[in-house]
Nucleic acid binder design. Structure first.
Lengths: 185, 185
DNA sequence: ATTATCTATAGATCTATAGATAATGC
DNA sequence: ATTATCTATAGATCTATAGATAATGC
């Protein structure tokens, strides 16, 4: 052993964390195992002692990213006078738009996940269910309403990241927030 | 010349059409130039006489797909008593969800386009502008309202394609349609 | 003669594996 | 002795190019 078992376990956790960031930044197909391991400070040969395949790593990375995002959304909801508005404003924000590699896994990777393995798609489905549960629990809306609201949040963030014009990008975000907050009255 | 100039021109058009379908189906990185040319009935060596790069083909393919989608949306809008509702129902439908390779370029490829070349992103921005113009012209809504409505349409379709459970997928679509049509009252 | 298309290949990737190395844990 | 990590590489891709081929258009 080049490192202790404890260090090896830490290394594994670190690889999953790095993968979560790199996959969001470059897409599932935009970063290779060798570059991922290199970014984690390890050589790529050691990868297959910890993960059966690149896809298995992708599933673990997505699950961890969802857990982190859910925690952050819950935090802002718990401390807010209007929890649903707080969630909407956090998600549909210039900061989230500009933090592709640290943001929501759905907004970064869901279109690729559509073409991915059943295991990967299941991880996304579970993550989306988690978002909906949170909105129902703290937002005081039905599951169907939560679906429509989250669809708007996801679409607005995706559009704002795709267009080149920064004015148009900001306009997409503010229009979506305004539409969602007004609809509650 | 193995073929006449007219046939060569038709071949070029055909390659762009095939690319539009194959890119939507497999993603920009999920299909190679050789396989694309093979799907078009040509060998991959001839590709670079017609296109300077794979990315240039992607830009042309996206532009053509947007033109086709915009035409179809205009058609249903022109013939409808409620043009905006007709656009919404056509876009947020199980048929559109199940036709990834023939559907909207934004729903199939925009998250990848975010990581793409400025030329590719500009093609998407122009296509999105076209959608918004159509909704403003036929739907009787402001540009900002069109942005929020299209965000919901895009998000709902993306989510419905990502989840595995068909019941949940249908529920996402129907919830989004219901939310958009009710909001007009 | 021109040129659209072809075959063949260069050079750079990619995922995954085989076997060597070396430090931990018994 | 066990095993986490390493080096090295197999085999399959990928984009792009070079040069041959062969039919059109002059």
């Amino acid at each position: 052993m080049k490192v202790s078992r404890e260090q090896a376990a830490r290394n594994r956790v670190h690889v999953v964390d790095v993968a979560g960031t790199q996959f969001r930044k470059h897409g599932f197909d935009g970063i290779g195992v060798a570059d991922l391991m290199n970014a984690a400070g390890l050589t790529h040969g050691g990868f297959y002692n910890n993960f059966p395949s690149k896809d298995a790593l992708a599933v673990e990375a997505v699950e961890r990213v969802f857990a982190e995002t859910r925690d952050r959304l819950r935090e802002v909801a718990v401390g807010a006078a209007d929890p649903l508005a707080a969630i909407i404003r956090l998600y549909i924000s210039p900061e989230h738009r500009d933090a592709l590699e640290a943001g929501c896994a759905v907004a970064a990777l869901s279109q690729d996940a559509t073409r991915g393995s059943p295991e990967l798609r299941s991880a996304f489905e579970a993550g989306i269910e988690g978002y909906l549960d949170l909105m129902v629990e703290f937002g005081g809306v039905s599951r169907g309403q939560a679906m429509a609201i989250y669809a708007t949040m996801l679409g607005a963030l995706t559009l704002s990241r795709t267009v080149v014009d920064p004015v148009m990008s900001d306009e997409i975000l503010s229009s979506a927030v305004e539409s969602l907050l007004r609809r509650k009255e």
